[in-house]
């Protein structure tokens, strides 16, 4: 595990010996069996693994959306695994950005409003937030599509909006779950490059879950989730 841990002082995210199992009837499936890793600011870690290996479950535990059976998750110095759901929700709003394979844009809002939505969750919207949302959309190459509805955007454009939304609140940690899963090869390459560039520019730590060894290789570090452990 030495390749997936960093200096304690630099780490934005520290995952320690996380275990998770599911019961199905009388059988128990050990999905995560002592996963440990760190990610520092501006760094990117890719996690590969087969379908059903527990990558999304691990990402959900890191995001505080699911609880681990054992082990701990630290967001900087905050013990996320010890927080109440309400406190975790509040911290997640400020600390974590998320990008999903299926984009999950809100169809009733245009691109700019979707990007601004995380800022609304924190409080009011001022000119500063609007300018940042516009700058993020410009950074992902969508300055001309700010008023466009998700339904009128291509898959690649939707994922760009989702990346901009994930970074809106300047999260210290960005979690991306198969962000290129629904895209063609050319668009996927562009999205990956954009994701890494934007995270570097924002000094956000990136945890990327992907099937693709090609895109995994573009991150600072890479790990394979196999039989519940990171290798």
């Amino acid at each position: 595990m030495s390749d997936v841990t960093v200096d304690r002082m630099e780490a934005v995210l520290r995952v320690r010996d996380v275990r998770k199992s599911f019961r199905s009837g009388t059988r128990t499936f050990e999905i995560l069996n002592g996963v440990t890793f760190d990610v520092a600011a501006g760094e990117s870690l890719s996690i590969r693994g087969e379908s059903g290996s527990g990558k999304t479950t691990l990402l959900n535990i890191v995001a505080g959306l699911e609880t681990a059976d054992a082990g701990g998750v630290l967001w900087k110095d905050l013990k996320a695994h010890e927080q109440s759901p309400r406190a975790l929700c509040r911290w997640r709003r400020d600390f974590v950005g998320m990008v999903f394979q299926a984009y999950y844009l809100i169809p009733e809002m245009n691109a700019l409003e979707n990007v601004l939505f995380p800022a609304r969750l924190r409080g009011g919207i001022s000119r500063t937030e609007r300018e940042r949302a516009a700058a993020l959309l410009e950074a992902v190459g969508l300055s001309g599509r700010m008023e466009s509805l998700p339904a009128t955007l291509s898959g690649g454009e939707r994922q760009r909006v989702a990346i901009a939304r994930g970074l809106m609140n300047r999260p210290a940690l960005l979690l991306a779950d198969e962000p290129t899963g629904n895209l063609d090869e050319r668009t996927s390459a562009a999205i990956m490059s954009l994701l890494l560039d934007v995270c570097r520019g924002e000094s956000a730590a990136l945890v990327l879950v992907t099937h693709s060894p090609v895109y995994a290789a573009q991150t600072s570090r890479t790990a394979l989730l196999h039989e519940g452990r990171l290798e």
Partner: peptide
């Protein structure tokens, strides 16, 4: 689910 994941309270 997305709103909850982004930090929107229940």
């Amino acid at each position: 689910g997305l709103i909850g994941a982004m930090g929107g309270g229940a």
